Simulated scan of single mutants.
Amino acid sequence: MLQLLTWRARLVFWSGFAVIAGFLFLPLAWMGLTAIKPEGEVFVRIPTLWPHASTLANFSSLWSRGELIEQLKNSLITAGGGAILTVVLATYAAYSFAKFRYRGRKPLMFLMLSAQMFPFAMMLISLYPILQWAGVLNTRLGLVVAYIILALPSGTYMLYSYFVNIPTEIIEAARADGAGELYILHRIVLPLAMPALVTVGLYSFMWAWNDLLFSLTLITDPQLRTVGPGLLLSYVGESKSDWGGAMAASIVSSLPVVVGFAFLQRFFIQGLTAGAVKS
């Protein structure tokens, strides 16, 4: 009887796993196969899964057009800059909330986290005139500021969950030895919190890299466009859409995030789960 239940449980498990895996990976497989299809096989009444005549013309055309390289550079600058500054600011804010006691500490933290309750479109409406007043609208700096504002609350809470579990005795011992607060943070706390720092940085980078709403609204100069608006405006139009080229460009533009996550996934998982269990 036990063996029968085990067999049925395995069947249910693997069936559910196959359904979920198909739901997640079928769009990726379709994107990859569409990227190697000629245009004649993309626009057919009954599309086929596997191309009859595979081609790499969609990939080779990416470099001849030259737009994608500039868009990748802009995305690396804005997403990378936003991620680095988010980690720096979130580190100081989270350490202050976790290890210092002062009046208004919790209300201030809850006020910062409350920014996540508002829709991004509403925040964009408030952010647009501020960037316009500051003279950084339609610049990379303005887009970096927007990414910091959006990622800072969640990044601060992630680091707060990690810092609060670091034993206070370590910090008190360093203070007793005469170490300053900045020395304690930079030389003692941050090496222990490296998984959380990587998590916040990778989260901020991925969010900014995949952004479309803010980059499409705040950047109008074609030379400053990032990957999201660049793919939309370059390959998708009202009268004609180059789906093969769009899929090829999507694969190439996703490689930086995929490669980064592949190398840093161990730290990413540790950082996400560190605050779940209090020591």
Rank of each mutant, 00 (worst) to 15 (best):
Q3T: 09
L68Y: 06
S154Y: 12
S154W: 09
M31K: 06
N74F: 12
W30F: 00
A179E: 11
A115V: 09
R10E: 12
Y102G: 03
I77N: 13
R187Q: 12
S60A: 04
N58C: 06
A9V: 10
S215E: 13
I20P: 05
D221V: 08
V88D: 05
L5K: 12
G178M: 13
L218M: 14
G260P: 01
G271S: 04
R8V: 14
V144C: 01
F110Q: 07
E70D: 15
G275M: 03
M1L: 11
G80R: 06
G230Q: 14
L62C: 12
M109T: 10
L28S: 00
A98F: 07
V144L: 04
P167R: 15
D211A: 08
L218K: 02
L137I: 10
G180E: 08
L152N: 05
G237E: 06
F214Q: 05
Q270C: 05
F261T: 12
F13V: 12
L233E: 11
Y147D: 01
W7G: 05
A21Y: 04
V258F: 10
V257L: 15
V145E: 03
L85T: 08
K73P: 00
M31F: 11
Y203G: 01
A262K: 15
H186D: 11
G260D: 03
M31Y: 02
I125T: 11
K37D: 05
M123T: 08
I170M: 14
I149W: 02
L212W: 06
V189P: 08
L68D: 09
L213A: 02
L124T: 02
R225Q: 12
G32T: 10
L11F: 12
L11D: 07
P153S: 06
P222N: 02
E169H: 07
